[in-house]
Amino acid sequence: MADPAPLPAGLGTVPLRVPVRRIGRRTFDFSRQVAVMAIVNRTPDSFFDQGRTFALDSAVAAAVAAAGQGADWVDVGGVPFKPGPELSAADELDRVLPVVEALVAESDVVVSVDTFRPEVAAAAIRAGASVVNDTTALHDPRLADVVADSEATLVVTHSLAPPRTAWPHPRYDDVAREVVDLLSRRVDLALARGVPEERIVVDPGHDLNKATVHTLELTRRLGEVAALGFPVLAAVSNKDFIGEMLDREKPDRLAGTLAAATACVLLGARVVRMHDVPSAVDAVRMLEGILGWRAPLLARHDV
């Protein structure tokens, strides 16, 4: 494909330190590629599907189906972010490891484990996971040690509360600046503990310890997060900021989700975490075409 015409200033461009990444068995060039991360939660009280993939066979089937639908990446979680009853590390492992093992055996899709526990991360990596997706801003720094001792990638996410702890009435003087500042410090911690920069992804934490107005502003200013130089993961799918913006319940947030994900990509995101995989894959591939990064699959209209 010929080089595309230059994009409008700033549109779709990010100053990545290491754009080409080998993650698991796949290679991504994040200077001209966006990865779709599917979501499989083995929890009875998951944010969106409310336990639809809690049963092991349902979770494995959903993970394999997501890979077949074009997801580049499948994120497997056993503990919700929201506050709730304590779940032991052993129980978390019982939930996530069989899904990781089954998916690795079936597909070359990138497999990540959504956890804040070092022992769970270590076991998942041994089982074949190639990403540790920590939504607690390295609350336990030993998680970085586990990643540093492997070939896995670490997602460093902005959040303020300890794991599974409520953070009522969040306040920010300048939400984007404060998010970037914390992410920068947490990335420095990961680097200091041996995680190389080519294995770090950052997530600004849409809705995590943030009100809707904070998340909307953070999305508008996502370029400031991308300016850190690491691929940005945008976990916007069906979140409450979309529901509150549009007055839509979770089953009716797909249009808002796709709009938010599109805005994030144009402002610098390179991974989008999405529930509806076929719709997300179509939206992302269309964006890649508009940005000049992907050729059309067909050319019938030209004939």
Rank of each mutant, 00 (worst) to 15 (best):
V195G: 08
A55Q: 02
V60A: 00
P15R: 08
A259N: 00
R22T: 11
V213Q: 15
T136D: 02
P6Y: 04
W293M: 03
A192T: 09
T262V: 05
V202S: 03
A71K: 10
V146M: 07
A280Q: 01
P118Q: 12
L138N: 04
A299W: 14
A235I: 07
G194M: 05
Q33F: 13
L287S: 02
A190H: 08
V132I: 02
M286G: 12
T257G: 02
L298I: 15
T115R: 05
R294I: 01
E119G: 04
L258M: 13
A123W: 03
E249M: 05
H275Y: 01
I200T: 12
V104S: 02
D3A: 13
F81L: 01
L154T: 06
A176E: 10
V131R: 08
L183C: 13
W293H: 05
A148S: 05
P4T: 04
R294M: 04
V175K: 02
A211K: 15
H214G: 00
L97K: 05
L266A: 03
D302N: 14
G77P: 03
D45V: 06
A227I: 08
A192D: 13
A105H: 04
G128F: 05
A161E: 10
N133H: 00
R185H: 13
Q33Y: 13
L97V: 06
M1Y: 03
A122G: 00
L138R: 04
V175P: 01
V104A: 02
